[in-house]
């Protein structure tokens, strides 16, 4: 139980996110209306994705320095969960955009860049599955993973800011800045980010342990 405190924390934070996210007071803004509450569910997907992909990169680097099965497995499982969060982020973003920007996909720089970022990570999964030899697969995909993460950061955080984007925080759109400062939103938003991220880490944790067990089973049989 002592080792699992962060899993309990994740559950508590997520329950808080849902309850406070639905019931708390939010700024009254035109166009956004109640959809502003998506801030607690859409944005944490991306924050969670970045943090989980960061874990993936850390374990890829660890693998290159110290090639163990464990490092490789955690890097791979974290990348997959990161991709899951990214897909959820892009789908929830499209749903939100339909009712605030008018279109599911308006070729907004932020949308396009995040789609490219996800494609880079899809390629990671494809690349990995194309090797038969375990060590070769682990080493080459670890190197690719580092490059993928390095490409993702400018795609998500730099390039959309250089042009005009509808997405808050980008281009000439101050959007969220005005109500980002709203402490009512922050009170739920930060716990939401932490809660969703911990949930993702939990999934990575279970999947990696299962995969390590599976590999050990093959070794002994």
């Amino acid at each position: 139980m002592k080792k699992n405190w962060w899993k309990i924390l994740a559950v508590v934070l997520l329950v808080f996110t849902v309850v406070a996210g639905m019931l708390s007071d939010v700024p009254r803004l035109a166009i956004l209306n109640e959809t502003i509450r998506n801030l607690y569910f859409h944005v944490p997907m991306w924050f969670g994705m970045i943090l989980i992909l960061l874990i993936s990169v850390v374990y890829s680097i660890k693998y290159l320095r110290n090639p163990t099965t464990r490092n490789d497995v955690i890097a791979y499982e974290a990348a997959k969960v990161g991709i899951l969060f990214g897909v959820l982020g892009i789908v929830t973003g499209m749903e939100w955009a339909k009712f605030t920007w008018g279109e599911y996909w308006s070729n907004d720089p932020k949308q396009n860049a995040s789609a490219i970022g996800l494609l880079i990570y899809f390629a990671y999964v494809v690349l990995r599955s194309s090797f038969n030899e375990q060590q070769q697969r682990a080493r080459i995909s670890a190197v690719y993973n580092i490059f993928a993460f390095a490409a993702l950061i400018p795609l998500l955080f730099i390039l959309p800011r250089l042009t005009d984007s509808l997405h808050p925080g980008n281009g000439g759109n101050p959007g969220f800045n005005t109500y980002d400062l709203d402490s009512r939103l922050r009170l739920v938003f930060y716990p939401a980010v932490l809660g969703w991220t911990l949930l993702g880490i939990w999934i990575v944790n279970v999947k990696s342990r299962l995969e390590i067990l599976r590999q050990r089973l093959y070794e002994t049989v």
């Binding site: 874990i55 402490s183 922050r186 991220t197």
Partner: peptide, 29 residues
């Protein structure tokens, strides 16, 4: 994992606290 979790918590707590202190009056947009 544990170190990362604690680190995240500290980061969010401090930024949240700073913002709350810096913008105590900003409730109306």
């Amino acid at each position: 994992f544990r170190i990362l979790a604690v680190w995240c918590f500290i980061l969010f707590a401090t930024t949240g606290l700073q913002q709350a202190q810096a913008q105590p009056e900003q409730t109306e947009v």
